[in-house]
């Protein structure tokens, strides 16, 4: 896993987001003159009952559930998110996690929710995610291969973990902080770049990001649906979604 960067400030978003934010600020600046700094606090999501305190002492405020389809579509209806999500007839948009999201998609949502609420939500770093999820994640299974020559295959999982079907929010475990579904079938985007050996990388040119879920995975920033199979060794995440965190109380 890449270096732990838990101390990074909230503004460490991808350059794409930064560019968006700059645009947004510019637009808002113009808007303020006639609209005023009106924020729609009804858009603020439900946060976990308790803030998480990480081993570094850092405080993290975490959304109780993953962003839902209904929340996502509000962003889309307001013209800030490109993707329109739908639910199956047997699902409720208000309780179904928004999935099928690429990293690009989630940066659109982040820019929008921060603009509309005036808050500074962000995605967690991989280490932050791992720490808040530790209490609900199962113990790591023994690697299938331990020989150093076999690291390329060592992450292969032959144990069946969480069922892959998309379930309504609250269907999986809740952490002591009141954070739900960290061990569910939705993997959550982090802003931790997976850059291989070249180390620190310009986030705007980061080819892949870690996603938080039952097992470690890195996803190309373009992927919305991590199909299984092919050359990808192991079992890819079932669904890609997002959960907001903030360094400040909401």
């Amino acid at each position: 896993m890449a270096a732990i960067r838990t101390s990074k400030p909230a503004v460490t978003l991808s350059l794409r987001s930064v560019a968006l934010l700059v645009t947004v600020v510019a637009v808002l600046g113009a808007a303020l003159t006639w609209r005023g700094a009106s924020h729609d606090l009804s858009l603020v999501p439900q946060m976990a009952s308790r803030r998480a305190t990480l081993s570094t002492g850092q405080k993290l405020y975490v959304q109780k559930y993953e962003v839902t389809v209904a929340e996502w579509n509000t962003c889309q209806e307001q013209g800030s998110c490109t993707l329109r999500l739908r639910v199956r007839p047997d699902q409720d948009a208000r309780t179904t996690p928004a999935t099928g999201l690429s990293y690009i998609d989630v940066t659109e949502y982040l820019a929008w929710i921060n603009r509309e609420t005036g808050h500074t939500f962000r995605l967690p770093f991989a280490a932050e995610w791992a720490e808040i999820a530790r209490s609900v994640l199962p113990e790591k299974p023994d690697p299938t291969f331990t020989d150093p020559s076999m690291t390329w295959a060592s992450a292969y999982l032959t144990e069946e973990l969480t069922p892959r079907a998309l379930k309504p929010q609250g269907s999986f475990s809740t952490s002591p902080e009141g954070i739900a579904d960290l061990d569910g079938s939705v993997w959550e985007w982090t802003q931790e770049c997976f850059a291989g050996a070249s180390g620190e990388r310009d986030l705007a040119r980061c080819p892949a990001f870690y996603v938080g879920g039952e097992h470690v995975a890195a996803m190309s920033y373009l992927i919305r649906d991590p199909a299984r199979g092919g050359c990808a060794v192991g079992t890819p995440p079932a669904h890609l979604g997002m959960r907001l965190v903030s360094d400040h109380a909401i």
Partner: peptide, 28 residues
């Protein structure tokens, strides 16, 4: 040793439609 993917090498079928099996092989 390692993981082998047995695929339909129309890779659209192999990776996107589900035509993949895996062999997990032990050894040196």
């Amino acid at each position: 040793p390692g993981v082998y993917a047995y695929v339909n090498h129309n890779l659209i079928i192999g990776a996107m439609l589900g035509g993949t099996a895996h062999f997990v092989v032990e050894g040196e």
